[in-house]
Design a protein around this nucleic acid. Sequence first.
RNA 1: GGGCGGCUAGCUCAGCGGUAGAGCGUCUCGUUUACACCGAGAGGGUCGGGGGUUCGAUCCCCUCGCCGCCCACCA
Length: 885
Amino acid sequence: MLDKTFDPKSAEPRLYAAWEASGAFQPTDNPAAEPFSIVIPPPNVTGNLHIGHALNNTLQDVLIRFQRMRGKAALWLPGTDHAGIATQMVVERQLAAAGNIGRRDMGREAFVAKVWEWKAESGDQIVQQLRRLGASCDWSRERFTLDEGLSAAVRKVFVQLYKQGLLYRDKRLVNWDPQFQTAISDLEVETREEPGKMWWFAYPLEGEPIDGVSEIVIATTRPETMLGDGAVAVHPDDERYKKFVGRMVRLPIADRLIPIIADEYPDPEKGSGAVKITGAHDFNDFQVAVRHNLSLLSIMDEQARMAGPIPERYLGKPREEARKMVLEEIEALGLLRDIEEKLIARPYGDRSGVIIEPFLTDQWYVDAKTLAQPAIKAVEQGDMVFEPRNWEKTYFEWMRNIEPWCVSRQLWWGHRIPAWYDDDGGVYVEETEEAAQAAAGNKSIRQDEDVLDTWFSSGLWPFSTMGWPENTEDLKRFYPTNTLVTSFDIIFFWVARMMMMGLHFTGEVPFKRVFINALVRDAKGQKMSKSKGNVVDPLGLVDKYGADALRFTLTAMSGQARDIKLAEQRIEGYRNFGTKLWNVANFCQRNGCVRVAGYDPAAATQQVNRWIVGETAKTAELVTKALEAAAFDEAANGLYRFIWNTVCDWYVELAKPILNGPDGAAKDETRATVAWVLDQCLVLLHPVMPFITEELWAQTAEGGPDREGFLMSTAWPELPLSLVDTVAEREIGLVIDAITEGRSVRQGLNVPASAKPALLVIEGADWQLSTLDANAALVAQLLRVSEVRREPAVPEGAIPFVVNGATLALPVAEFIDLAAEKARLAKELAGLDKEIARFNGKLGNPEFVAKAPEAVIEENREKLAEAETAKSKLESALARLAAVG
RNA sequence: GGGCGGCUAGCUCAGCGGUAGAGCGUCUCGUUUACACCGAGAGGGUCGGGGGUUCGAUCCCCUCGCCGCCCACCA
């Protein structure tokens, strides 16, 4: 006997452990099986499962379970990312909180050891959390971006790119994070628009005034950088300033002479039209400075404190303080011309939240422009497709305007750059220190202190995890992968980089399809964030409702283009769905619906059974097609409708009279069919709700033929649409309509529940009557009337009403408000008149008849005929009603 | 400044050429031997505004208006 409800808390861990122990997560070694592979977007090794992971991994699991059941050699390769900057940040913060010394005082080795310690401590948390979700990853193949093999792949890639001239060291402006004191890539900079000020300064002209003008006014939002100005630029066509070009101004405070130059860069419409050029602290200015061969004055250090060739009183001052000092001094000098309130776009480090400083340093760059070309082409020619398709625009846009990728980070947690230097400026890029030393001869060498951007190793993920550069069996069998499931916020960071690296090093796209999932927001549509306190913890939801309910919710909502607004109520609803399934299984058990060996759905004889077999086949078709197309929501919603509305609401109800009836062939067949339908439901629902279906699979094993292994390893059903019996479909449809309509009218008539009047079927098209006749007992039971029978006419005192073209009668005038019923019929009649007029109008329109498709015209004719029949029934019903009352 | 989404029932969203659907919520009824984590029923929408194409538009085109996201070097 089944328990009253499914208890996910005890069942889920038990089932998961059993699956894992059985080796069912590993791809089959059947050589005939077609491979299907997914690599997981590796979460931060020390991270926690958030709702985005839950969505993303649920979809992957749905896919992989589906493909596994279809007999593919399905591999879902899991792993984690070392997440350089994020992890280092966490550990540094912990050290600080514990009152320990900072990492710089601690030294590299000790600090990195600390991070490994932290990884060991919290490293498998997220992996355990994925298990709680039900993720059927092949844990025997689990990888980590910093493990031995992946590190070797990283070194190989770095060295090869270097030797191919696609990776180089360069001194240029980078985005510098003064808190972490490292360079970051363009993508890690977040521009925020904030209210700020723009100050207008006058720079005195050196020498004679021109036309009485003895100063040039510049506008700036960053006054402190003026100390590093190398020039003032004006547009060559700007009449106001043309004459000043070639002269010098005296830079206030710094007290240096700088030239006035002409350049296309200044926009005469903006600000004063004259721009101060600070080559070492602004990306635009840098380009101007290079064009004009201006010297680049760095006036800040790694922590964004003032430094360099500037007045002594500024040295060591933080940039904010320096700004105040400059403003005060400029004002005191009488050179402040104006202050303008303005929205300023400021760059912030996406991790540190600190304002980024353009900073002149030596860094390693990848020639992304070159690598991007094949990656663009691959998507253009469809070797890789985005799903939804639209995201390729985003991808193209970025790839076509790609800038060199700064890959070096001044951090300690990560892949150390395999480059060594000698004291004479020689650089040796090799996979090992031995090789570098060999190249350097007897010179002494030291390794580059920096590590690589986390995304450098993630970019290799699809092939490095499979053993590249070795030509492993896995690589041969499972690469390229089939589908990548990820969210749009890392298309640039990750998808694009994998495309570039994959194509360059393996000559193949790393995946054939990328499914971009939406972003999960809270019920109000706000982005979840710790500071807003609206973060939904997926594990809390799993605790409360079970993993299946959460999985179903996320799957059903995954169709949304951009955002998923997650409301807890919804999860509750899908938990109820699981319970509904559980209860229907319970019903099966109580009614002796046991699976029968060799059951042939095509051989069913009972009309309801023939009907549900067809409905099941249609659902299987729908779910299969949907999952193939990654239309996860359609699959989930189709199953929901089928199981709840079709099976539970109708099939089970229609089967009850047979199951409660006398023993015999009809009862046996129905029992077997009910059991079969339930089995199909379990199989089809399994990818989305693996736990409850697996549990029911085991619980329903009793009495029937033996179950072979787990449901998760069971074959996906192949149910041909030829199982659909259109006659059964139409007739059962009619029975359902009649019952629905009958109930509706009964309720409208306010017939008390206690009343059991007879229901008479007296008119209607023959085939409809025969259907109703055949199911008379059933209809009577479901309508809760004592009897359904045919009569030539409405008997004396009975109240007629129209259902589905047939006229039914209740001989219970005392229960019925005659006036209300008359009004109802009159209203219905008016509606029909309108409808008839509409169809007549349409069909009377020569243009419609001439141009509309034949099928549409035919449909309209049928509807017109139906409406006219219904009208005549209604009219006679009204007449008889008048006679009675 | 570019680009991309969204605007459909009170809420969250499907539908995307033939006069509107679901779930939740609301209201009414219900001790029907699977299920109250249930069942039956009702109410509720000029499908953001305005044009156009079409026999016919929520659906296609144009335009405007909000809302959101991404990218961009504007001082």
